[in-house]
């Protein structure tokens, strides 16, 4: 009985495809990304199709998501940030649905792969840099030099540069590590249930009754994971907004 809690994160090719020395296979990872994007698109198209004054259930769910993200952008990045609503909403929906679909039994968690989360974080940071330079020109570099006496700037500028450069790493690692740790924990506790339940065929079968305890724990942890799945999507989106607002307004208050 080989139970490896990390087995669920294995990327397996479904349709092998090798072009010019590159492995471009269609993997279970690609399949679940397609499912997530398809589900989000179908849901939003279906919910957005009925533009009634008194919304249907699906429409009010979509409106809830819209207003949630719109309020989040408005409170952090102001009016100028609302131009980036499609960008932030797309990222939020993708991360949220990936996290939720990953909680289905037997599914694959797209966001538990550092390649996916780092690509998302890189897109965010490159957008921030692009917006900053387009809006402020070379003045965007003032972001790294807050108003301070020169002897403090000697210290502050390297700190600001390092903190800016670690953003894509922390943004991607946070999401990836949370998903990885949560799903590994679920599998480890599932292993406890099976290991305790398997004592039923040993000379001391009464121990197998104890397997109900980790079973209840799994239920509790799954609830916690639902919260984490939402919270990480929220944190990812709100940090995107905060980084965008820094690029839009530099250090000025708006």
């Amino acid at each position: 009985m080989a139970m490896n809690p990390m087995e669920q994160f294995e990327v397996k090719p479904l349709v092998p495809l090798h072009i010019g020395g590159y492995d471009l296979s269609f993997t279970n990872q690609s399949l679940w990304m397609c499912i997530v994007v398809g589900a989000a698109s179908i849901f939003l198209l279906y919910a957005g199709a009925s533009r009634r004054l008194v919304p249907t259930r699906a429409q009010s769910m979509a409106e809830l998501g819209y207003e949630f993200v719109a309020n989040m952008i408005h409170s952090t990045a102001g009016d100028a940030g609302l131009k980036f609503f499609p960008f932030v909403f797309t990222i939020f929906m993708f991360v949220l649905l990936s996290n939720f679909f990953g909680l289905l039994p037997g599914s694959f968690t797209v966001t538990s792969q550092i390649a996916v989360t780092f690509a998302l974080a890189a897109v965010v940071i490159l957008t921030v840099i692009l917006v900053g330079f387009l809006r402020h020109g070379i003045g965007f570099l003032k972001l790294f030099a807050p108003k301070a006496p020169w002897y403090l700037l000697v210290l502050l500028v390297p700190i600001e540069v390092i903190s800016f450069l670690t953003r894509p790493i922390s943004l991607s690692v946070r999401l990836f590590a949370n998903m990885l740790a949560g799903h590994t924990m679920l599998k480890v506790f599932a292993g406890f249930v099976i290991a305790l339940g398997a004592t039923a065929i040993t000379p001391k079968p009464y121990w197998s009754v104890l397997s109900i305890a980790p079973m209840f724990l799994i239920v509790a942890i799954t609830t916690l994971e639902l919260l984490v799945a939402f919270l990480q999507a929220y944190v990812f989106a709100i940090l995107t907004c905060i980084y965008l607002s820094e690029a839009l307004y530099l250090h000025d208050q708006h």
Partner: peptide, 20 residues
Amino acid sequence: TTNLFLGFALCEATGLFGLV
């Protein structure tokens, strides 16, 4: 609440570097 989650996120990130 925005500052709350920002602080939470930054705090968590430093610990997760160790996990990485």
